[in-house]
Design a protein around this nucleic acid. Structure first.
Lengths: 188, 188
DNA sequence: CTCCTATATATAACAAGTTATATATCAACT
DNA sequence: AGTTGATATATAACTTGTTATATATAGGAG
């Protein structure tokens, strides 16, 4: 449901091809929704079947033709309805594979767990850096699409991405310290 | 893949029925993995087909018989292999429906968004409270299963749950303040 | 001159997750 | 007496998400 509505929302800003949508997802929606290209194409097909989007083919020299999707009035209505209808449970379910690994880490030597936590920490720091660079992406899009009112909300989602990622960086650091401490205690 | 291995891990602690596994998930694995009962049953079936678990039926008076699953040597091997084989990307993809709603909130009056953020905040605080009560659950399980070495790691996953949830509480509070501020500016 | 990357769309096969439903018993509440 | 909730297992139908693959062109790196 959500990916469908995320795509409808983006198409309400601007008509785009599946390929373009994928770029927008990878560039900016990344902190709160990830999608595979193949899934985007399928969802676009579903949305067209339902009449929420329409498509026109744009011929391109030297490259495959572009299929540009536009939101229909039906689609706009559906999107508005979805926006007005918040679910009971607002927190999304969590599924974090790495935590399963940590949970059962008594099976592994502490050095191995510390090593993986260090990798985790590095990746979280990378993501945090990426988040910080997104501020400019927001400015760019807001100007390109002349949507100054949306900037505020886009920044709120980015802020959430930053805060969560900072928490992950801190968490992994504290874990590493705790495990090193536990190692020392054991050596005594 | 992860749910399968999470279940194998839990069964390596103790043989259990699908119903019991569900309770453990809801009680304690909750901060990092959520699963539906129906999915647990299906995964147990898959694991049995692969020979990773075996089941014995335990007769019960007055209630349907219990089907108790135990991990096999094959299953233990598979679980160890999985534990030793960490993926390149350790950070899990994020899919947060509420953020899609926030992203497009310029469509709605600010009061409505503030209202939903307040609901979000309340739910996050509830979850945080629940996390704090989990400390005792960890103690209980560690004693019941006599697994003192695992407690350390269980606490690390719980700590992550707490830190993330605290970040969500703070994030939603800051969002509410920002929106109220923006409302005031507009009124001037 | 070949390989890689970017542009561009799409499908097949599979894996994972959700929702609804069926069956059955017992205890507690109304 | 009837409903609800907990105990207990399971399947069907559906939706969503992942991985692999096919096709086709252009430009740049090696």
């Amino acid at each position: 449901m959500s990916l469908q509505h995320g795509i409808l929302g983006l198409l309400s800003y601007k008509s785009m091809s599946g390929y373009d949508l994928n770029k927008v997802f990878n560039e900016s929606i990344n902190h709160f929704w990830s999608a595979q290209l193949s899934q985007i194409y399928r969802v676009l097909g579903n949305l067209e079947d339902k009449g929420y989007v329409s498509s026109q083919v744009e011929h391109q020299e030297g490259r495959p033709d572009k299929k540009i999707y536009s939101i229909t009035d039906e689609g706009k209505k559906e999107f508005r309805n979805w926006m007005n209808d918040n679910p009971e449970q607002l927190l999304s379910p969590i599924r974090d594979e790495f935590m399963i690994r940590i949970f059962f880490s008594s099976l592994l030597p502490k050095e191995e767990t510390i090593f993986q936590l260090e990798r985790y920490n590095k990746q979280a720091q990378e993501l945090l850096k990426h988040c910080h660079s997104e501020d400019q992406v927001i400015d760019k899009y807001a100007e390109e699409l002349s949507l100054p009112n949306d900037k505020l909300y886009w920044r709120l989602t980015l802020k959430k991405g930053k805060m969560i990622t900072e928490a992950l960086v801190r968490w992994s650091e504290e874990c590493i310290e705790e495990l090193k401490q536990a190692q020392k205690e054991h050596q005594k």
